[in-house]
Design a binder for these strands. Structure first.
Length: 716
DNA sequence: GACCTGCTGCGGAATG
């Protein structure tokens, strides 16, 4: 904790309690780091504050040294920490326990894997620091609502760990609602500390932490950025070029290779192992890491990365989170990164040691062009998108999560939970608690009333003669099942069993037959049995295999990324961070862009299809396609473009002009969407609310209308 | 749309 500390006399340090200062001296600390120093004043003053700095920079201590220096009652809970991961709760517990022991402050972890007995002990005598998941808080409020005031009554501060991971998600909205409900139970505001990675818009993180009232203080690390080495490598052909280079890079040292899909992880691990074994070396240096792998196998990979000299882990976003794997030598990214923020997090996994650089290589693979390649595929999208994202990263850009979503699925959960907590509510009290003073600000009384009606239609709620709303029969059943406490859904998963060992789980996206081959955990397998009732797939090792079908396309690309791509097409300079292969592909993409005259005429004919290039993010792109479809055209997004089949350019331009002049209503657009049920409780909403929720979270009508106007010929 | 994340209370059997 002390390595790299700032060895200087600090004024903040003297304001910490004497016992904390003595503890810090005993740890051999030479001084406080920048964020630790600046966190002291606002926390001692009891203000809301967002602490932003890189992983492993001592944020936890920055919060807890001043938190535990505050005068407090011996009895009762002092600090409540909410964390997104069980593994992080266990980590934090280990880090805080020595300090807690010194000060006589108990530290208690609370999540699904913590034994009941330990929870019971704390329930009888609440004290000290509690580290807990949002789901466990939900369970406490829904099932023991009447005891919540006594349990949480003495809280001095709330901490939210990994704040950035909650912003603009269903789980994040649930978290905000829980924090608000806690304050209502306690009967006073409790100051909040958010621990965050460095983000583009910390103001938004601060607003998220405290949606009403004064904006929290923001304490951002000013420690100089590490030296960063970024490269986009371009390949065209069978993919061997990229494999050869990658294999050369990871032959020695420690590396993380990020893939955008779990199936891709498995394929790459397999290839690397095969090559190593072909060279007479062991394939044991290569590991897979993704969400379908059993926890034990993931932990083996993490341990290997921390401890072994030559280790490479191929991973999905599972290694992007706060799990401690030390610092690796280099990072590889296969294909364009899912987002600029995600690339920044991935980059930060390397070069953590003093004097090291962070190194990230993006491997962008493209297919050879033929005379039949359609325009949207002639632009070398992967290379250009990767280069655009690197430019944005260097400029310090991060995607801003979308605002204005209604989060009605999570509102359903919160209504049911609040009714369970209080035993019954009046409709206007419910609206005031969750919407007027709570986080569902966009929900009007009328909308709230429709939602209550939809829930009553499903027997989730019922109204007594005096107007009190209570749980219906179905509502009792739903709330009393443990599945209720999460705000998100998970698809049915099968357990993969080899002999006596469970090696992971697989989402059931398509039928799996006996005899099927698959790659999993970096090895080849054959399916010997599928036991539907028990949801078990039995496997034996097999000589050949293909990757299991996880399916899917990719993450939504941001407006700024597409705008930056257009700039790259329209300029001539070669960025210094692209290699020879990527230079050629970029030049080829630019030639196509000019030959197709996309700068002058972004709507063109390709056979009997019209292709439009608006250079906007996926949300607006999808909305634009829906708008064209609402005018009777066969339109659909395809990569960076919108395709309109069986149409002429004039027809499409006419439609765009009409759309720019008179934008259609959201309800007209959502009518065209077949599957709007995307979140957990969506199926419990009536068609109107479902459409409203879809529009609020998935459509960008303003962006699509702007794009329609920009696609029109000049003077048209 | 890629990728992630999380979970209570009780009954019954086995053990000391």
């Amino acid at each position: 904790m002390s390595d790299g500390g700032v060895p200087r006399r600090s004024s903040g340090f003297d304001r910490l309690s004497e016992r904390i200062r003595r503890w810090a001296w005993r740890q051999g600390w030479e001084g406080l780091r920048d964020v630790q120093e600046r966190a002291i004043e606002p926390i001692l003053a009891g203000r809301d504050v967002v602490l932003a700095s890189a992983t492993a920079s001592g944020k936890t201590e920055a919060a807890f040294l001043p938190l535990l220096s505050r005068p407090a009652d011996e009895r009762g809970l002092r600090v409540l920490t909410l964390s997104p991961l069980k593994a992080l709760i266990n980590d934090q517990c280990r880090r805080l326990e020595p300090l807690g022991d010194t000060l006589g402050i108990p530290v208690t972890p609370w999540h699904g894997d913590v034994p009941q007995a330990r929870k019971r002990t704390l329930r009888v005598r609440p004290a000290g620091i509690l580290l807990i998941t949002p789901e466990s808080i939900e369970a406490m409020l829904a099932t023991r609502g009447s005891g919540a005031a006594a349990f949480f009554g003495s809280l001095d501060y709330v901490v939210v760990d990994e704040l950035h991971s909650f912003i603009a998600t269903e789980r994040g909205r649930q978290l905000q609602s829980l924090l608000h409900r806690l304050e209502m139970v306690i009967g006073r505001p409790v100051p909040r500390v958010g621990l965050s990675a460095t983000l583009g818009d910390l103001g938004q993180a601060a607003r998220f932490l405290r949606p009403d009232g004064l904006l929290p203080d923001i304490v951002e690390s000013t420690v100089a950025r590490r030296d960063v080495k970024l490269q986009v490598r371009g390949y065209c052909g069978d993919g061997d070029g990229a494999n050869d280079h990658l294999y050369g890079v990871v032959a020695r040292g420690t590396h993380i290779i990020f893939a955008n899909q779990r199936a891709e992880v498995e394929v790459r691990v397999q290839e690397l192992k095969r090559r190593a074994e072909g060279d007479g070396r062991s394939g044991d240096a290569f590991w897979a890491h993704h969400g379908s792998l059993a926890k034990e196998l993931r932990e083996d990979a993490e341990t290997a990365l921390r401890d072994a000299r030559d280790t490479t882990v191929v991973a999905t976003t599972t290694l992007e989170l706060g799990i401690d794997v030390g610092s690796v030598d280099t990072i590889a990214q296969l294909g364009a990164p899912p987002s600029v923020s995600s690339m920044r997090q991935r980059l930060g996994r390397s070069g953590r040691r003093e004097g090291d650089s962070s190194v990230l290589r993006i491997y962008a693979e493209e297919l050879p062009l033929t005379a039949r390649t359609p325009p949207q595929d002639q632009l070398r999208e992967t290379v250009v998108q990767s280069a655009a994202m690197v430019q944005l990263l260097v400029e310090g850009y991060n995607e801003t999560p979308r605002r204005g979503a209604l989060h009605l699925s999570t509102l359903v959960q919160q209504v049911l939970s609040l009714v369970a907590q209080r035993g019954g509510i009046r409709a206007d009290d419910g609206w005031r608690a969750l919407c007027a003073t709570g986080p569902f600000r966009e929900v009007t009384p009328a909308l709230f009333t429709s939602l209550l009606r939809d829930l009553a239609d499903h027997d989730l709620l019922s109204q007594m003669h005096d107007g009190t709303i209570v749980l219906g029969l179905e509502g009792e059943r739903v709330v009393n099942h443990y599945d209720f406490y999460t705000a998100f859904v998970t698809s049915d998963e099968y357990r993969l069993v080899a002999g006596t060992q469970t090696i992971g789980t697989l989402p059931v996206t398509r039928p799996i037959a006996i005899g099927d081959l698959m790659l999993f955990a970096g090895r080849r397998w054959r399916v010997t049995d599928v036991r539907g009732r028990e949801r078990i797939i039995e496997l034996v090792p097999a000589p050949g295999g293909k990757a299991p079908a996880f399916g899917g396309a990719g993450a939504a690309v941001d407006d700024a990324v597409r705008a930056q791509m257009r700039k790259l097409y329209e300029s001539d300079g070669l960025p210094t961070f692209v290699d020879g292969g990527a230079q050629e592909l970029l030049a080829e993409g630019r030639r196509s862009f000019r030959r197709l005259e996309l700068a002058e005429q972004p709507v063109l004919a390709w056979g009997d299809t019209v292709v439009a290039f608006p250079w906007i993010g996926d949300r607006a792109l999808n909305t634009l396609a829906l708008m064209l479809a609402s005018r009777g055209l066969r339109a659909a997004p395809d990569g960076v473009a919108v395709l309109v089949q069986d149409a002429a350019v004039g027809e499409v331009v006419d439609a765009l002009r009409a759309l720019a002049q008179a934008p259609p209503e959201a309800s007209t657009l959502t009518e065209k969407v077949q599957n709007k049920q995307l979140e957990k409780h969506h199926w419990r909403l009536g068609p109107e609310l479902l459409a409203a929720d879809y529009a609020s979270s998935r459509l960008d009508i303003a962006g699509a209308v702007r794009a329609a106007a920009n696609l029109l010929p000049v003077g048209g």
